[in-house]
Write a protein that binds this DNA or RNA. Structure first.
Lengths: 146, 146
DNA sequence: AGAAATTTCCCACTTTAGTATGAGGTAAAA
DNA sequence: TTTTACCTCATACTAAAGTGGGAAATTTCT
């Protein structure tokens, strides 16, 4: 909740600053309206992206879960916990299973490729595999990805 | 990738339209700069939200399928033929789906790694993918591997 | 508050993957 | 008997993937 408030605070601050800059420079006639609007548009576009990203990040996960019942096409959270996979690692694993490259995963999750590589390495260790195709195969068998 | 480009195209169009409206109304002195910027910000904030939403949403394909017979976990040879995959390519694809490296596939099929690479490249072309994880994913959806 | 676990990111490498192109051999179709 | 489609293999690169070690910032737990 904190980051959202902070984010919106910064957002509003940005807006105000833009207003001021616009006002000041407008008298001088230096800055075109188009530029100001474009900048605002860009900033808020990405703010929107980031906001949504933050929202999606905070999805619940524990779900006490019962270790039985013919759960068809359902992720087995117990299995994930048993393997010691973290939330983020699972995120990466899911993306990996769809055939994304490290760079694509990084872009999708707003992270650097380095980070993805780190996660991927940890995933391989925890799943006891050597390659991503193997990881996907194992993950599918263990029902930790659909 | 196409939809993204189109999306950005529309986005830019939006921006330009906003510019024009702003220009016109600015001469009259009716619309304040703050208002224009705020509107632009709002619009692009939600564009950002929607964009991200669409990105996350698309990933699931229709999976038309099922011409007949409840073929559970069975390879669809019609699909293979339709794609123009040869026998050998299918062999390689199957091995690939189990997480084998090129070298491992080569060993398993008593071929050189070069040959496997050739087959793999052809598979990618026929499946219209760029990476092996993607190929496996697509192959699974098309039921040409179990 | 302090410790422990997560998450993020880098750098410097090593290893696989993947691309482009060419080419010899075989077997079936025209 | 050509042609055509496959299968095989190679070389030379370019591009990703994966490893190891370190480290700062956050979050979570105690």
């Amino acid at each position: 909740m904190r980051p959202i408030i902070i984010g919106f605070g910064l957002m509003i601050l940005c807006l105000l600053v833009l207003f001021k800059i616009a006002e000041v420079n407008f008298i001088k006639g230096d800055v075109k309206l188009e530029v100001i609007v474009a900048i605002a548009a860009m900033i808020f576009f990405f703010v929107g992206l980031y906001f949504n990203y933050q929202q999606g990040k905070k999805r619940e996960e524990p779900t006490p879960q019962q270790p039985e019942t013919g759960t068809i096409n359902t992720i087995d959270y117990n299995q994930i916990k048993k393997l010691g996979l973290t939330q983020r690692e699972h995120d990466v694993l899911v993306k990996m299973a769809t055939g994304c490259s490290n760079q694509e995963i990084a872009t999708a999750l707003f992270l650097s490729e380095s980070t993805i590589k780190t996660h991927v390495s940890n995933i391989f260790f925890k799943l006891d595999v050597k390659r991503r195709t193997q990881a996907v195969q194992v993950a599918r068998e263990l029902k930790i990805v659909v």
